[in-house]
Nucleic acid binder design. Structure first.
Length: 453
RNA sequence: GGCGACGUGGCCGAGUGGUUUAGGCAAGGGCCUGCAAAGCCCUGUACCAGGGUUCGAUUCCCUGCGUCGCCUCCA
């Protein structure tokens, strides 16, 4: 049973399943108006790891992650660049999935698009308006949060405190709303903007309405888990839930939020600070597995510092793991060491304690390496199998790097021959040549092993 | 102003009321090696400051200082 921190109750509690054997998860996906940044990468990676783990334990996982393809930001960019808004969303979506593919993130089981659900949103808003839970103003339709008794469940703050705070912040549209915290379900469109018909006037749905309709439509009431970045906790998730509650529907049973990616100074990356790191750049410069490893070595709720030093450390650690996989590849048919697997499970069940899991992995690798040194084949194969099993369950594939060309392999044979003949000058020359071509050359009593670096 | 998180060895980053107090990276020493690489072993004696509770606190409580997040679009 997976124990997971729940934002609503602010405590770690078992993830209860609505239907035994299967898990229903809704993850708020991207608004497609720009390239993915490191924060998007973290969120998708965290939930990819969760999803893979749950699947590994034998559960059937349904992971719904939407694409928000209608939003003010998209319209703004379309206007600025004189492009069709759908042109931007299509392009951004393909860039998104290409990046996620490189990260090794499995595509969600369902990828609903907000624009495909507009009618459902209009219907939902209509119900809320007829029940007087929502009302029409001159610029849109708003939800009356007074109709939601426990509004603030996720914010963990009283409305008064939320309103009194924020220093000099302005409350948007405060003048024409019943309550300053009421939020838009439907926004009337200005001429030239994308719009859909509605009983109240042409317009587009509010962001919060998109996610409730899609999650309830695909997963149904009382689905198991709703997740996303910590910044979505309030107002986005709070407001999604508020609509469901106003409709008299049971919403998510458990709320999970991941921590931010911060810069080297420890500040959250944000566009206004100009410290946003592009995920595409990271993927071009480094082995994508390094980012996954970095996140596995941090708890998912802690802020993560992402900088070159950090990623470099992971690249080095990965080299050690790959090297381990390569040097033990002859013993790849073992049964995973049950003790190691049990430790893995117990760490994961404890609120996804992947840092402990990685410590276990590195310890196991060391144990197997030692066994390898002394020729304890049984230990090598069972521990190796456990390591591969665990890393596989977390989405980390080790590289044997043994897909080398024939002429390179030939040079390896020549290198061994030169060593046997004690012609070390020739052997060193061959090794230098191979290394300058980017290969890792490891010689031992058993012969030379060449692999891609 | 409200709510919340955090301050750990050169760096990153877990964790814990006390005996062998993660792990990764980097560094130094050693073994192995023709020399390297890979691997293994050893070393560094860390917990913001000041009080308090306790036989004992890095871990609990209080105060102070510092950092960060949310309260507005945001993974």
């Amino acid at each position: 049973m997976l124990n997971l921190y729940d934002t609503a109750t602010q405590s770690v509690k078992p993830l209860a399943l609505r239907q035994p054997g299967s898990v229903s998860i809704y993850l708020c996906g991207p608004t497609v108006y720009g390239p993915p940044h490191l924060g998007h990468g973290r969120a998708t990676l965290v939930y990819d790891i969760l999803r893979r783990y749950l699947t590994w334990t034998g559960l059937s996982v349904r992971l719904v992650s939407n694409i928000t393809d209608i939003d003010d930001k998209i319209i703004e960019r379309a206007n600025t660049e004189g492009r069709l808004w759908s042109d931007i969303t299509h392009k951004c979506e393909s860039v998104w999935f290409e990046a996620m593919g490189k990260l090794g993130v499995i595509r969600p089981t369902d990828v609903p698009h907000a624009t495909d659900y507009v009618q459902g949103m209009v219907d939902m808003i209509n119900t809320l308006v007829s029940d007087d839970k929502a009302y029409v103003t001159d610029d849109g339709v708003y939800l009356s949060i007074a109709s939601v008794p426990d509004y603030g469940l996720l914010a963990h703050q009283s409305l008064d405190d939320m309103l009194s705070g924020g220093g000099d912040r302005e409350v948007f549209g405060a003048s024409n709303k019943r309550h300053p915290s009421d939020f838009a379900l439907w926004k009337f469109s200005k001429p030239g903007e994308p719009s859909w018909p509605s009983p109240w006037g042409d317009g587009r749905p509010g962001w919060h309405s998109e996610c409730v309709v899609m999650s309830l439509d695909l997963l149904g009431e009382g689905f198991d888990l709703h997740c996303g970045g910590a910044d979505l906790r309030f107002p986005h998730h709070e407001n999604e839930r508020a609509q469901a509650v106003a409709l008299g529907k049971t919403f998510a049973n458990h709320w999970m939020h991941n921590g931010f990616v911060v810069d080297i100074e420890g500040e959250k990356m944000s566009k206004s600070l100009g410290n946003v790191l592009n995920l595409i750049d990271l993927l071009e410069k480094y082995d994508p597995r390094a980012y996954r490893l970095l996140l596995l070595q941090t708890h998912y709720r802690s802020p993560t510092r992402v900088g070159e030093e950090n990623i470099d450390a992971c690249v080095s650690a990965l080299a050690g793991l790959d090297s381990f996989a390569a040097r033990t590849s002859a013993h790849s048919n073992g049964t995973p060491d049950p003790t190691v697997i049990a430790q893995f499970i117990s760490a994961m069940e404890n609120d996804l304690d992947t840092t402990t899991v990685m410590a276990l992995v590195f310890d196991s690798v060391r144990r197997a390496n030692t066994a390898m040194d002394i020729g304890d084949v049984a230990t090598v194969s069972s521990v190796r199998a456990a390591v591969i099993e665990i890393l596989g369950a977390l989405g980390l594939e080790l590289s044997l790097g043994d897909d080398i060309d024939a002429d390179i392999a030939t040079k390896g044979v020549a290198l061994d021959a030169a060593r046997t003949a004690k012609d070390f000058a020739a052997a060193d020359a061959l090794r230098d040549e191979l290394q300058s071509l980017g290969y890792v050359v490891e010689t031992s009593k058993d012969g030379t092993r060449i692999r891609r670096g």
